[in-house]
């Protein structure tokens, strides 16, 4: 097996990590960097619990090799809050009761953040479409969708 030393930026911090060739980005975040907010739900790119931002784009971190991440910039759920202030999608998920067991929540938050970054005024369909890769077994989804809608409105007002 091959071993690699990679340098990457995670939640704004520069990290140097030694990894093996078969290690996924998800495993590296959880096992090497103690960023356990990103969850492993299926290890096959289906459930979305491991979603992170990689160079600004939402990806399933179980479907990315750590070795590919040399030079990459990763944002996980732990990196959403800025200066102790929660991201607006974190706030609206709390306010609208869109969190139950919380296991899908980190991935949902990242998908929502990625959506609003690329499309600040999504339609209801666009929100549901963007979240369709994040399985949730507790909430029934509608409160999550509503929370993203409200987050977009708040950001729209702030931006105006």
């Amino acid at each position: 097996m091959s071993y690699h030393r990679i340098t990457l930026k995670v939640n704004g911090s520069l990290e140097v990590v030694d990894i093996s060739g078969n290690m996924t980005l998800l495993q590296m975040l959880r096992e090497k960097l103690a960023l356990t907010g990103t969850k492993n739900g299926c290890a096959s790119g289906e459930c979305g619990a491991c979603t992170v931002l990689m160079n600004g784009d939402a990806v399933n971190s179980c479907m990315v090799l750590a070795a590919e991440c040399d030079g990459a910039e990763i944002i996980t759920v732990e990196g959403l809050a800025k200066n102790g202030e929660m991201d607006v999608v974190q706030k609206t998920l709390v306010d609208l009761g869109a969190v139950q067991c919380g296991f899908c929540t980190p991935g949902v938050l990242i998908s929502a953040r990625a959506l609003l970054n690329r499309n600040p005024h999504p339609t209801e369909f666009e929100i549901r479409d963007a979240l369709s890769g994040n399985l949730c077994r507790c909430t029934g989804y509608n409160r999550i969708v509503e929370a993203v809608k409200v987050a977009a409105e708040i950001e729209g007002q702030e931006g105006a």
Binding site: M1, G21, N22, A43
Partner: peptide, 14 residues
């Protein structure tokens, strides 16, 4: 009954 993670392999970047 797949592996929990990837089996041992080399990552090669030509």
């Amino acid at each position: 009954n797949p592996h929990p993670g990837l089996p041992e392999l080399d990552y090669v970047k030509p």
